[in-house]
Design a protein around this nucleic acid. Structure first.
Length: 602
RNA sequence: GGCCCGGUAGUUCAGUUGGUUAGAAUGCUAGCCUGUCACGCUAGAGGUCACGAGUUCGAGUCUCGUUCGGGUCGCCA
């Protein structure tokens, strides 16, 4: 049926209220449910705002009633009528539960097949595969619609904030030079230069620095970024950054500015007033206390070093770790004594995922102490551990002994796992913090060289500059991450702003002059022409929105996300390219077999 | 690339030690029903047990492979 002027909506469903009783309105939307009582029909009409009940009475309007009788789930409707009270028959579960529209004009604008899953008002239990395959139906669910609309609102607030602060929004290119280090690039072949490729940006990093070189002083962009790496619940190959950069600043200025953004967002969007200052802790302290550079500080269970107490220990597991230069550390899981033997064993499995060979434990439940390790230690050693760990009723001590990386990784993960099992991870408890003074370099055992931990344009801390030549592993960076409830939601740094320092950086990373010239020549050249001190930060918008709304899967706030193998199950891509197109690009596909035709043909 | 979990009506699931015709709820279709709101009642239709091979007298169930989805380690400067 054609859509004509008098079919047009005069109100969204949930805009209607008791104040509108007696008013004639037109609504547009989908049939969420139809209830046929014989000579009365009720239809729940859903639009992006929510649901309003349409009422039809056979005795007063037979023709309209018969149209309503033919309506099925997900039919697209336009309905006109007068808003009236439901009297005593109200639905307390709905904002519009006291009113309904007595419809005298109903048009089926479009019929629909029965959808593969029901468009639920609340949580869905439909498996992911189907939701992704029919994402446009999944997005009809009020929950998803709410999330996507919330994302839009948050994005607008972000823009408002930075614009108020004098930031200039600048778009940077999406077809850029492939980057030599870091994550895998998505490549785009060039037709004009066969055999040559653009890369899709992993971030606008170099361009925003050049924007500072140019003198724009304050830049912001909501930037789409791409990384060809395996995805996770909090990681998509295609994601969005709130990217910002400032000139004539120190790291405190950048952190203050962005802390201000978070305050502004939480106030305006959630009505939540966050603590005035987020804690700022050093990387080394974060590792020491939480075993993680992105600690979740909603709960305790801090790490405790027991190495000094066990110097003369003869328990082979502890002894071996200490002798090899590692450490023995523990957490005290308050309330963890309630875990069963089986549950503690499964904690051991968690530890193993992070390279630990297992874990040692000791618990006190109902006055009874049980332990996996006590018999291997002296009474004095056991007593010393109990004292340092403040071991008391209801506690579970978990110990991991190994090299420091494994100990930190395993205990950091166990800390969070135990908190999750004890129900301590409340999604509406927002604990932000900054982690600062990251190491500038990271040594890679495999190829025996240093890599930039953040990126090779990060400035070292002034007092550590002399160490770059003597002991690079100890140099700290002017870098900072912002962490929310155990997830890194943003990070940035003060950048290098002289050619000499940039040269030293490349040298330390084992990038020769020739190589540096080939890869970053334009940047090195630009650095000669008057560069302001500058730095910035990028937030993961998807993560920020997800966590703010109480989700830990960013797919819940992305309209059309990728599946775990980076494919897109709805449109079925990636897909094989047209042979003619490949020919024009000068590309030959090798090892192509019948069962390797992308996701499209399966 | 490694490890783990899963795939049974449209959907969500159950399915015993390997045993005859694979069930439930919901959805769908039809009939009845004047105040429902997860309407109710009655009846009906609906299955390549993901795919392939193997073991077996016999496989939804056991084995192997493949595939799809999810988690995770590696990876993500």
């Amino acid at each position: 049926m054609p859509f004509v002027n008098e079919d047009k909506r005069t109100a969204y469903a949930t805009e209607l209220a008791t104040a509108d009783i007696g008013r004639r309105v037109t609504v547009n939307g989908w049939c969420a449910r139809q209830r046929n009582l014989g000579s009365l029909i009720f239809i729940d009409l859903r639009d992006r705002s929510g649901i309003i009940q349409l009422a039809f009475d056979e005795s007063t309007d037979r023709e309209t009633f018969e149209t309503a009788a033919n309506v099925r789930s997900e039919y697209v409707l336009t309905a006109s009528g007068v808003v009236r009270s439901r009297g005593a028959d109200i639905n307390v579960n709905r904002p519009t539960g006291t009113i309904e529209i007595a419809v005298d004009r109903l048009k089926i604008l479009c019929k629909a097949e029965t959808p593969p899953f029901f468009i639920t008002e609340g949580d869905t239990d439909v498996r992911n595969e189907l939701r992704m395959r029919y994402r446009y139906l999944d997005l009809r669910r009020p929950e998803m619609m709410k999330n996507i609309i919330a994302r839009s609102e948050i994005t607008k607030l972000v823009r408002d904030y930075y614009h108020e602060k004098g930031f200039i929004e600048i778009e940077t290119p999406n077809l850029i030079k492939p980057t030599p280090e870091g994550a895998r690039d998505y490549l785009v072949p060039s037709r004009i230069f066969p055999g040559n490729f653009f890369a899709l940006p992993q971030s606008p990093q170099l361009y925003k620095q050049l924007i500072m070189y140019a003198g724009f002083d304050r830049y912001i962009q909501i930037a789409r970024c791409y990384r060809d790496e395996d995805l996770r619940a909090d990681r998509q190959p295609e994601f969005t950054q709130i990217d910002m950069e400032m000139s004539f600043v120190t790291e405190d200025d950048v952190m203050d500015m962005n802390e201000g953004l978070i305050h502004y967002l939480y106030k305006k969007f959630l009505g939540v007033t966050l603590p005035e200052k987020f804690p700022r802790i050093k990387y080394a302290e974060a590792m020491e206390r939480f075993g993680s550079d992105k600690p979740d500080i909603r709960f305790g269970f801090e790490l405790c070093n027991l190495t000094d107490l066990l110097k003369d220990c003869t328990f082979r597991v502890f002894e071996g770790a200490i002798a090899a230069g590692g450490s023995v550390r523990a957490i005290n899981v308050k309330g963890g004594a309630s875990f069963t033997r089986r549950e503690i064993d499964s904690l051991g499995e968690v530890a193993k995922q992070y390279g630990a060979k297992g874990l040692a434990w000791r618990k006190k439940a109902n006055g009874e102490v049980t332990s996996s390790y006590a018999k291997f230690l002296s009474d004095a050693e056991n007593a010393a551990i109990d004292k340092r760990m403040d071991f008391s009723e209801g506690d579970l001590i978990v110990i991991v002994a190994d090299n420091n990386k494994i100990v930190f990784d395993a205990l950091g993960a166990l800390r969070r796992e135990c908190a999750a099992r004890l129900g301590l991870l409340r999604p509406d408890d927002f604990k932000f913090l900054w982690v600062v003074e990251f190491p500038l370099f990271e040594y890679n055992e495999e190829d025996g060289r240093f890599y930039a931990r953040h990126h090779p344009f990060t400035a070292p801390m002034e007092e550590d500059i002399p160490l770059i030549k003597t002991n690079p592993g100890t140099v700290r960076a002017r870098a900072y991450d912002i962490v929310l409830n155990g997830t890194e939601i943003g990070g940035g740094s003060i950048r290098i702003s002289t050619p000499d320092m940039q040269g030293l950086m490349f040298e330390t990373l084992g990038i020769g002059e020739e190589e540096a010239e080939a890869k970053f020549g334009f940047l090195l050249e630009a650095l000669k022409y008057g560069i302001p001190p500058h730095g910035g930060l990028a937030f993961g918008l998807d993560r920020l929105v997800a966590l703010t709304l109480g989700y830990d899967d960013i797919r819940d706030v992305i309209a059309f996300p990728k599946a775990q193998n980076s494919s897109e199950p709805m449109s079925r891509c990636p897909a094989p390219a047209d042979p003619q197109a490949l020919h024009e690009l000068g590309i030959a596909v090798i090892n192509k077999t019948d069962d390797n035709e992308g996701t499209g043909s399966k």
